[in-house]
């Protein structure tokens, strides 16, 4: 082991610890018994762990409902985003047409539009349209936020399937749609699944719009913001909420770890 190598590993370890330790700590905090959490002096390592805080958090009806809402919104967003972005992504990957650059520029521009700026006017509009405080309304906004990214991902997925395969299918008697369904779609499916997962994470994590657009039908992040800001929820509640938000994300990102670079790499190009 040379000195250079040693330095390399030390740096890698240090940076890994920087990322991992806070996550371990919230997990620890959420599994520390309530009375230990507020005791002082606080032992660095808790004497015992328990699921008491987590389970009482998860048993609250509001939390359960918010969880269900979050999942419903994410599911709806995936469906909407896929339906709207797949054709556009396909067009961008397969056709040269006048206005193509304009479309790409538009996507780039909308990527820059923050949820912060969209949420207020949309809330006002949704009240008029009867979409305010509905899960469908939140999903609509999440779809708008994810669309530019998902279009880019989908386009790159379709670009990965050679156009020649579709043409071969057409030369063998398939229609355009048939060629797409029988050849391109099956081959693009893993990539599209990854895009769906990306959409899920985006929707699951979205705080601002969800907070502004809901009152009775809060998603989990919206519920947490509300209880922290408006109700001053106790620490153990916050920790449990934090862990609840992080865990699914961790699992998902582990599942798609091989696509990480491609997914996020595509969206930021």
């Amino acid at each position: 082991m040379t000195l250079r190598k040693l330095g390399l590993y030390a740096a890698a370890l240090l940076l890994s610890a920087w990322v991992l330790v806070p996550i371990l700590l919230i997990a620890l905090a959420a599994t520390t018994p309530r009375e230990d959490l507020y005791r002082w002096p606080r032992p660095l390592w808790p004497e015992r762990l328990s699921l008491e805080v987590l389970s009482s958090f998860a048993r609250q009806e509001a939390v359960l409902r918010a969880l269900g809402n979050s999942l419903a919104v994410a599911g709806l967003t995936i469906v909407l985003a896929t339906l709207v972005s797949a054709p556009a992504g396909y067009a961008l990957s397969r056709y040269r047409f006048r206005g193509r650059e304009a479309v790409q520029l538009g996507i780039l521009a909308t990527k820059m539009f923050p949820a912060t700026a969209l949420a207020v006017p949309l809330a006002v509009a949704f009240i008029r349209w009867g979409l305010y405080d509905t899960l469908f309304g939140v999903a609509l906004v999440h779809t708008a936020l994810s669309l530019p990214f998902v279009i880019l991902i989908v386009a790159s997925v379709f670009r990965g399937v050679p156009a020649e395969l579709e043409e071969a299918a057409m030369s063998l008697g398939a229609s355009r749609v048939g060629a797409f369904l029988r050849v391109t779609l099956p081959m693009a499916l893993p990539g599209l699944a990854a895009a769906a997962i990306f959409t899920f994470i985006l929707s699951w994590n979205e705080v601002f719009a969800a907070t502004l657009l809901t009152v009775n039908h809060r998603t989990l992040p919206a519920l947490l913001v509300h209880s922290v800001v408006a109700e001053g929820a106790p620490l153990h509640y916050r920790y449990a909420g934090g862990l609840f938000l992080v865990l699914p994300a961790l699992v998902i990102i582990f599942v798609i770890r091989r696509y990480l670079l491609t997914l996020w790499g595509v969206t930021v190009r």
């Binding site: 940076l15 890994s16 990322v19 991992l20 806070p22 996550i23 700590l25 919230i26 905090a29 994470i201 699951w204 994590n205 979205e206 705080v207 992040p221 947490l224 913001v225 620490l235 916050r238 920790y239 909420g241 934090g242 938000l245 992080v246 994300a249 961790l250 998902i252 990102i253 770890r257 990480l260 670079l261 996020w264």
Partner: peptide, 18 residues
């Protein structure tokens, strides 16, 4: 290093709150 990609700003805030 990529893990925080999937962590929302809200979750990050709660994590560091601890």
């Amino acid at each position: 290093c990529a893990i925080p990609l999937a962590v929302s700003d809200l979750a990050a805030g709660l994590i560091w709150l601890s």
